[in-house]
């Protein structure tokens, strides 16, 4: 298939899956409400210090990280859902690259995570009175989208790993809060114990968030964005490789259709 066709496949698949996600009120509401509880709790802790800078530091991070709650809780369940629909085998049996089909579903999930970002931004503006005025608005927005995208790529890796290892389904939820902590959204990475810091450096959202903060402060964000791009590409490549491997394994072990 040509590049144009593949792009069209991703676009159509993204649109239709988004349409389906919107038809579940429960998912839509929970995706906004659940991370908002955690964000609000964190912001109330920071507000207690009376330090406005700390509060806006946390508000920026909280807004971005809410996407991860949507992605981590849904991405690893995508395969489970396709299995339940009975469409997983059809996706595999189709000539379109399987990883592309899954990626477009993850993109749809990540898109719905955007509502939580908007809700958290509005929440911190009107409830906590935090005015976010990034020094460089355009690079700020770019870095924000980049960070969100890297969450999508992590979700993609989780989703394809779940083809073969169904326990990943539960792992997705367990990875939610660790990333809230590890990537410098609410707590500066420098404050983390030394054994945890290298792990943070290996996670693309850490660099994305650094870029967001740099743009907010009017500092150069390009080095951070470079590291973001490199690490994100590595994760994407890993996910494509995992997808090919698990599919081969699923054909051998007959694990596709198990509900």
């Amino acid at each position: 298939m040509s590049a144009g066709r593949l792009l069209r496949l991703v676009a159509v698949s993204w649109y239709l899956h988004l349409k389906m996600l919107h038809r579940s009120m429960f998912d839509s509401v929970m995706q906004v409400v659940w991370p908002l509880f955690f964000a609000t709790t964190a912001l109330l802790v920071y507000r207690a210090t009376g330090d406005r800078d700390a509060l806006s530091y946390a508000a920026t991070g909280a807004a971005v990280v809410t996407v991860w709650s949507a992605v981590s809780s849904n991405a690893s369940g995508i395969l489970q859902r396709e299995r339940a629909f009975g469409t997983l085998e059809l996706l595999v049996a189709a000539p379109a690259p399987f990883s592309l089909s899954i990626m477009s579903i993850v993109l749809a999930v990540t898109t719905t995570g955007g509502y939580a970002v908007a809700a958290t931004l509005l929440w911190s503006r009107f409830v906590f009175g935090v005015h976010l005025a990034p020094a460089w608005p355009l690079p700020f927005a770019l870095a924000l989208v980049a960070t969100v995208f890297s969450f999508g790529v992590l979700g993609f890796l989780l989703a394809v790993a779940a083809v073969r290892y169904r326990a990943v389904f539960a792992l997705g939820g367990a990875l939610e809060l660790p990333l809230w902590l590890a990537c410098g959204f609410l707590v500066p990475v420098a404050l983390l114990p030394s054994w945890l810091r290298p792990l943070s450096w290996l996670l693309p959202p850490t660099w994305g968030m650094q870029a967001v903060r740099a743009a907010a402060a009017g500092q150069s964000l390009w080095a951070d964005l470079g590291l973001w791009a490199g690490s994100t590409a590595a994760y994407a490549a890993a996910a494509v490789w995992v997808a090919a491997t698990v599919l081969r394994s699923a054909r051998r072990h007959a694990t596709l259709s198990l509900t």
Binding site: A42, V45, Y46, A48, T49, D51, A54, A58, L181, L186, V187, P188, L191, L192
Partner: peptide, 8 residues
């Protein structure tokens, strides 16, 4: 860690 970061 949020508590440590906020100093609370």
């Amino acid at each position: 860690y949020i508590g440590r970061s906020a100093g609370i």
